[in-house]
């Protein structure tokens, strides 16, 4: 594996392999000194053409715990404002001698496009509506570890609620959840369902009440408020009446079922309930697991391949 551009690039064995390595990383993260020299001498550039807090910090934390050097490129302070092209930006960064580019861009396909302009490994940290493969992997890690079913989601049902059409998280998660064996249900207003959703291999339901009491995982997507301006849903209250998780609905969630959200949360929109009041909420576990899973991804792409090196930090 040279790049991580899309969940579709990964076989089920590779997905399971990354999640297994993440267990090692999670152990490292519990140590008093949570740092190993596995990627010492490697340089990782985080290149964010679009704002992000958690994904960028999660990647940078992961890289530092593996002792890699990290460069941060923020579009707002870059030569892009001087009209530099994407190609020139990537070629310039690459010429500095970096081993991996962690890239986020508002346009679908940019991580794939830039592979032709760099020798570095390219890791997709979210591109347009297309893919967010590290989110898919960290969510798969979270669900399998919460349920203690390690390599499989066989027999589990997962509902993803909200703006499916414009969601890169939905595209990555649906693919991974399904291939690990889960039954996936999507719940969205018609204008926020992707066209040709019937080709996605998911069940489509029209209200959150159809699923809230039945599924093992309720995965709430962020509802972008700017979508309320165009002719997509009649109004915010109308949307909330059908799709938001209220305290009443949360009370119907099955015992042991999980509440997840990729963040950032729009409180009062998709989550009217305080997630702290939902027993099955693992929203903060997702963030914590994100560091371990991204360490596993960086290590899988850039490391020696032998997990024994992960013991080094513990001994020193």
């Amino acid at each position: 594996m040279k790049h991580l551009l899309s969940t579709h690039d990964l076989s089920v064995d590779e997905i399971v392999g990354i999640l297994d390595v993440a267990d090692h990383m999670a152990e490292i993260n519990t140590r008093a000194l949570p740092k190993v020299p596995a990627l010492r001498g490697k340089t990782i550039a985080s290149v964010f053409f679009e704002d992000s807090t958690r994904t960028r910090l999660s990647f940078e934390t992961a890289a530092k715990r593996l002792s890699a050097d990290v460069m941060t490129f923020m579009a707002s302070s870059s030569s892009l404002n001087k009209g530099e092209s994407l190609r020139d930006t990537i070629e310039t960064l690459s010429a500095m001698g970096i081993d991996a580019l962690v890239i986020r861009h508002k346009s679908s396909g940019v991580p794939q496009t830039i592979t032709q302009w760099t020798d570095a490994a390219v890791i997709n940290a979210g591109d347009g509506w297309h893919q967010h493969p590290t989110q898919g992997l960290l969510d798969a890690y979270t669900v399998t570890r919460e349920f203690g079913t390690k390599d499989s989601l066989q027999g589990r049902s997962i509902a993803i609620v909200g703006d499916i059409k414009h969601s890169r998280v939905a595209r990555s998660n649906i693919d991974i959840f399904r291939r690990l064996g889960a039954h996936v249900v999507v719940v969205a207003p018609p204008a926020l369902l992707p066209s040709n959703v019937e080709s996605w291999g998911v069940e489509v339901r029209s209200t959150i009440d159809d699923v809230v009491g039945d599924v093992d995982v309720l995965y709430m997507l962020r509802m972008q408020l700017e979508r309320m301006d165009s002719a997509i849903v009649p109004s915010l209250p109308e949307y909330c009446a059908t799709y938001s998780l209220t305290p009443e609905r949360a009370a119907q969630m099955g015992k042991g079922s999980l509440l997840m959200h990729p963040g950032p949360i729009n409180r009062g929109v998709e989550l009217i309930v305080d997630p702290a009041d939902v027993p099955g909420s693992c929203i903060l576990a997702q963030v914590k697991n994100g560091v371990s899973v991204r360490m596993a991804i960086l290590f899988s792409l850039l490391g020696s391949g032998a997990t024994s090196v992960l013991q080094q930090g513990a001994e020193s």
Partner: peptide, 15 residues
């Protein structure tokens, strides 16, 4: 084209 391919690629479709 607003078809299966477009839907999975996550780009706006031309129906």
């Amino acid at each position: 084209h607003d078809g299966e391919c477009c839907s999975s690629m996550g780009v706006p479709g031309w129906p």
